[in-house]
């Protein structure tokens, strides 16, 4: 356990399970994702079975269990984006980036996540890559995005 992690835990009283979500949020903010070791330490601190903690964390989309790629794609599957064909984009992304939705490529370059809304339904379909929004995406746009990122990676 490093100091940063100890500091987070020490802010929350031991054995009080109401601290669970804020603890997980803070760790996620610091580390980007939750590992089994981290959950085990949280489990000891809160005196909760580790599996219960994983159950809670797996309920929320905001928690991740493996690191994101350097280029993290969030593709919206909300109603508006879906009607504009986001599911075909998803298939295309999975094919070209060689990653399954919800996972990260082995080389750590790309990761892909399905989200339910990015708050820009009027601009559908929307894809968010790291912090950049791509709106009213067409298949041509998607190809360009992918190629420029691939080139950048090489």
């Amino acid at each position: 356990m490093d100091q940063q992690f100890i500091n987070i835990l020490s802010e929350y009283p031991a054995g009080k399970k109401e601290g669970l979500l804020p603890i997980l949020q803070e760790i996620q903010k610091e580390r980007g994702f939750l590992t089994e070791d981290v959950l085990a330490d949280v489990s000891l601190h809160l005196n909760l079975p580790i599996n219960k903690i994983y159950g809670v964390a797996a309920f929320y989309d905001q928690f991740h269990f493996h690191p994101h790629g350097r280029n993290h794609f969030r593709i919206c599957n909300g109603t508006a984006c879906y009607l504009f064909g986001s599911s075909t984009f998803l298939k295309e992304l999975e094919k070209q980036l060689k990653v399954k939705a919800g996972s990260t490529s082995r080389d750590g370059k790309f990761s892909l996540e399905i989200v339910t809304c990015l708050g820009s339904c009027d601009q559908a379909p929307v894809i968010l890559v790291n912090e950049t929004y791509y709106t009213r995406v067409t298949p041509g746009d998607l190809n360009k995005i992918i190629h420029s990122l691939k080139d950048k990676e090489e």
């Binding site: 089994e36 909760l48 079975p49 580790i50 599996n51 219960k52 994983y54 159950g55 797996a58 309920f59």
Partner: peptide
């Protein structure tokens, strides 16, 4: 009182499972 299994995921994706879906050979 060991809580070795729990619902993992949400809605139609819910499954009963263990930490990181590693199978039942868990410490708990």
């Amino acid at each position: 009182g060991v809580g070795a299994i729990d619902v993992i995921g949400r809605g139609s994706e819910s499954r009963i499972g263990t930490t990181y879906n590693k199978g039942l050979n868990v410490r708990a």
